[in-house]
Simulated scan of single mutants.
Amino acid sequence: MPDRPRILVATGPIDATADLVIDELNRRRVPLARIDVGAFPDSVTLSARLGTSGWIGEIDNGSRALRLEELRAVYWRRPSAYAAETAAPGPVREFASREARAGMGGVLYALPDVTWMNHPHAITACTKPAQLAAFARAGLLVPDTWIGNEPKDHGAFCAEGSAVSKTLGPIAYDGPDGYRVLFTGRVPHEHFGDVRAQATANHLQREIADKVAEYRVAAVGERLFISEAHTASPYLDIRALDPESVTYKPGTLPDSVQEAIRTVTREFGLLFAAWDLLRDAEGTVWALELNPAGQWAFTPDSDEIMRAIADHLEEAASQ
């Protein structure tokens, strides 16, 4: 194994999940560089020159540097947004941010022979509508779903049976009254067909009311780590519950569901995906979503997941 880092861990300053993988790679004495690439150009520097075989040069955060031509694996977790705070606020900063993203991202994406977990392009392509369609093609059951902004159709969907509203993107955002989290919520009758639906894309699904268990599946390459969650508390969104009220244990899923999970994960070009599924009282398994940068440290198999991720990165770095 080379002494200089051939693994880039791209994430922000606080990431407990990435810390676990970094600690494991350090135990194995696998050199790596943890760099928040989104901090470019404020506290990270990039110097790249085009050669006959591609880009050569260096990324440096002041305490750790990585040679571009030696990079063999990227563990892309949750780097910061390109803020370009050293530029003047307003249009100048917006321009600087776009250029920073195009420069750092463009150079990294152009490097040959690099294993990505996961490539940002693959993450971007993994939208909720694309996920749900891929689930259905692979034979997974998906709750009846409607996406749109037509109030009449919004009302008609809700009138067919209990409907829940979900976000299409991250559930957290900074609003005018501070930080907010939008958990899954049941659509009340007075909101059926509300004209305010025209303001954005609404994501509605038929409620699975008789759920008895939820699953978090970590797919690492072809390996699946299945955890089953139970709670005695009534809920619509298990994420909104007190974590102390939820218990996790190793779980199992039908072979057909497991193979579909592998198929969809491969289809999106992902080496890692955190899946959410549930089982109803009749034993039917429903696929809800996948997250290319989802959490797994709370599951019973967290140590095995950590080692599986480290295995992929170490193997790529040794090439």
Results as ranks from 00 to 15, higher is better:
residue 2 P to M: 05
residue 5 P to K: 10
residue 9 V to T: 12
residue 10 A to H: 06
residue 15 D to K: 08
residue 17 T to E: 02
residue 17 T to C: 00
residue 17 T to N: 00
residue 26 N to W: 14
residue 29 R to K: 15
residue 31 P to R: 07
residue 36 D to K: 04
residue 39 A to T: 01
residue 39 A to C: 00
residue 44 V to S: 09
residue 45 T to N: 03
residue 47 S to Y: 10
residue 48 A to P: 01
residue 58 E to P: 10
residue 62 G to Q: 11
residue 63 S to E: 11
residue 63 S to K: 05
residue 64 R to E: 14
residue 65 A to L: 10
residue 65 A to G: 13
residue 69 E to V: 02
residue 70 E to Q: 07
residue 71 L to G: 07
residue 71 L to M: 14
residue 72 R to W: 10
residue 72 R to K: 14
residue 72 R to S: 12
residue 78 R to C: 05
residue 86 T to L: 06
residue 86 T to V: 12
residue 89 P to Y: 07
residue 92 V to Y: 07
residue 97 S to H: 06
residue 123 I to C: 07
residue 127 T to R: 07
residue 128 K to V: 02
residue 139 G to I: 00
residue 158 C to M: 03
residue 168 L to Q: 04
residue 170 P to T: 03
residue 185 G to H: 14
residue 187 V to T: 04
residue 209 A to N: 09
residue 213 A to K: 03
residue 214 E to V: 12
residue 215 Y to H: 05
residue 225 F to P: 02
residue 229 A to Q: 08
residue 230 H to G: 07
residue 235 Y to Q: 05
residue 238 I to H: 11
residue 248 Y to H: 09
residue 260 A to S: 06
residue 261 I to F: 12
residue 263 T to Q: 12
residue 269 G to Q: 08
residue 272 F to Y: 13
residue 281 A to L: 13
residue 281 A to V: 14
residue 283 G to W: 04
residue 293 A to D: 00
residue 295 Q to D: 05
residue 296 W to V: 15
residue 297 A to K: 13
residue 300 P to S: 12
residue 303 D to W: 09
residue 308 A to M: 14
residue 308 A to L: 12
residue 317 A to M: 01
residue 317 A to L: 01
residue 319 Q to F: 09
